[in-house]
Design a protein around this nucleic acid. Structure first.
Lengths: 238, 238
DNA sequence: CCAATAGTGTCTATCAGACAGTATCGA
DNA sequence: TCGATACTGTCTGATAGACACTATTGG
């Protein structure tokens, strides 16, 4: 490598892109419709520049708040983690941009807010987004995010971040089935969740879902942690 | 976010830092001794600028080859993956630098090569490196790398990337014990490894270790993959 | 009533942990 | 011979998968 002269470095733009996932009937992702070239009219992930005086993590939090319109209070329920950095030379046709992608799991689905370079922002089923021609390398980023989310549901209690502020075990199971695309046995799922320390905490309420049926115990997220051994799906991972 | 004008972006320097791990008697990491300020005289992780015409991934591969002195042929046995991006505002006192940290698992321990901003390069036990005052935020990066390596040994067959070009099951077990800092039952370890498809392939040879004992079957890495369910340690993860 | 959901119980195959016992090397 | 390693076998407790059964809601 060349001598480390702080004034003669190759200049890059650094951005954050955020994959915000929620589960309603299906697994959905927040996308914006780009209003400017390149990729004007295409869907893209929300994101933006890291500012000179903020950390990469802070930029991700700021962008998440801006695009979802969530207030600081509600934002605490959203799980946000770094996903990976995408730095192909030609990933942006205009200039050299390195993007630090993040994964956000939201228990709620707020009305999104379009940024300045976006015409609109909306929630889209993940299947639909993956089938559409996304801008830049955002297909790759979204795909990595869904893989990561699915893997994390296996060995962490993060599913509670997608199940709403509170939820029944049936709703929590629906989160797993939506992310994994695979049905689970109700009895075994219940046994595993209730046996895992820090997964869920009963609120004392009971609630009946939209489609009737017996009222179920309502839970809220526990202290969190890992499942050891994991709760596993059939298909191969990695 | 501001309007996306490609000519008015906040300029960043983007670097790659690499945590190269091997197992000999202990888990060891490749460090350099910095020759220039800041942190002149301190140990640091090898790394350098991402060049304007190379991807972040390519920069990591280049730096790995430069610092380890490994030829292209030998380099294929080294596992290299992105670890995470570190982008605190003041992580480099001179300027705004965002670093994409990588994790490399090497089956061999070549004589390292010092870069231009380094006085020396050497292998150091990880415990020792974590106890020393590393430059920049490299303590945080190294710590994250060891955590990642330990976690990956649980559910992947990556330990073969640390066990040498070929190895006995005793040597492979020593990799696990070195990374996890925890003894394992020989019989149960053997059963799990041999039952996992694509983990190891017998070469037909037998070999006696340095300290005598019966000669063991020699294996080489298999096609790789995941362990399902994982091979697990005692302590809590995440 | 029926469809849909919630909750409990049970059987079984599998597997990890623990550990005993034998065999083969170098010194 | 002894220390160290390699390898095999066995018992047991825990648990995931499969599935049956009952109970409670809305329509």
């Amino acid at each position: 490598m060349t001598a480390y002269d702080p004034r003669s470095f190759p200049p890059f733009a650094v951005t954050v892109d955020i994959v915000v996932l929620t589960v309603t009937d299906r697994l959905e992702v927040l996308v914006i419709e780009r209003g400017v070239d390149p990729f004007a009219g295409s869907w893209a992930l929300p994101g933006g520049f890291v500012l000179p005086d903020e950390s990469v993590d802070a930029a991700a939090e700021r962008e998440l708040a801006e695009e979802t319109g969530l207030t600081r209070g509600k934002l605490e329920d959203v799980h946000l983690e770094q996903l990976g950095t995408f730095g192909a030379v030609d990933r942006d046709p205009r200039m050299r941009v390195v993007s630090v992608a993040h994964l956000a799991l939201s228990p709620v689905q707020p009305e999104p807010t379009a940024g300045t370079d976006a015409v609109a922002a909306r929630w889209v089923p993940v299947d639909e987004a993956l089938a559409a021609p996304l801008a830049f390398d955002h297909h790759q980023i979204l795909s990595a995010a869904v893989d990561r989310a699915g893997a994390k549901l296996e060995y962490t209690t993060l599913a509670t971040s997608l199940a709403g502020l509170d939820f029944t075990l049936g709703e929590l199971q629906h989160v797993y089935e939506s992310v994994w695309g695979q049905p689970l046995d109700r009895a075994n799922f219940r046994r595993k969740v209730l046996a895992t320390q820090g997964f869920v905490v009963p609120t004392g309420e009971r609630r009946t879902g939209r489609r009737g049926g017996a009222p179920g115990t309502v839970y809220c997220p526990g202290a969190g942690g890992v499942m050891d051994p994991p709760l596993m799906r059939d298909e191969v991972r990695l």
